[in-house]
């Protein structure tokens, strides 16, 4: 188990944050693993945004969680070594800003099942709470996009055809 958390860390360390595309420190990668995002590490502000928690408070909780569990000992030691003196998101000084959390996506003229499936693939990898501003010019989109949101549980924040803002549902 300890080897597996460390192995996952070594595989994902250095990847950008899945949420905002910014830098993701090794310690943040370990927290991401602990939260189940082992293939999609996120920086602390994005983890906090996705879980609806204040980053500083979340950091305290995750620090405690990881240090209490032997299965993360090796991964945590390696993360501390890799990060060196950098605290970055671990210092909770960064904040996720709305403009980096809102993703714009031009779906072009695709519609019907292709649009529905593309929406699904676009939203699901994002952290909960992320907003995607979709531009979809298909003539059926004004009916289809709201229906898709009602069926899947994602929130249609606004609809001004051809732009639809959709908030990804929680975990």
């Amino acid at each position: 188990m300890s080897r597996s958390a460390e192995a996952v860390l070594l595989r994902i360390v250095g990847r950008p944050c899945t949420g905002c595309g910014g830098r993701c420190l090794a310690r943040e990668a370990v927290w991401s693993i602990a939260l189940g995002f082992k293939d999609a590490p996120r920086c602390l502000p994005c983890l906090g945004l996705g879980l609806g928690r204040e980053p500083g408070e979340l950091r305290t909780h995750l620090d405690d969680y990881v240090r209490r569990r032997e299965c993360y000992t090796a991964a945590w030691a390696e993360a501390v070594r890799l990060d060196g003196d950098e605290t970055g998101g671990a210092g909770a000084t960064r904040t996720a800003t709305p403009d980096v959390e809102e993703v714009a996506w031009d779906a072009g003229a695709i519609g019907c099942g292709e649009l529905a499936l593309a929406l699904r693939m676009k939203l699901l990898p994002l952290p909960p709470g992320s907003v995607v501003a979709v531009t979809a010019t298909d003539p059926a989109a004004p009916e289809d996009v709201p229906a898709w949101c009602r069926l899947t549980g994602h929130t249609l924040v606004s609809a001004s055809p051809p732009v639809y803002r959709i908030r990804r549902k929680g975990v």
Binding site: C112, G113, E114, A116, L117, R120, A147, W148, L151, T152
Partner: peptide, 13 residues
């Protein structure tokens, strides 16, 4: 038929 099937699966059915 497959376009409609894709809509169904994309709508979590």
């Amino acid at each position: 038929a497959f376009v409609v099937a894709n809509a169904a699966v994309a709508c979590d059915q």
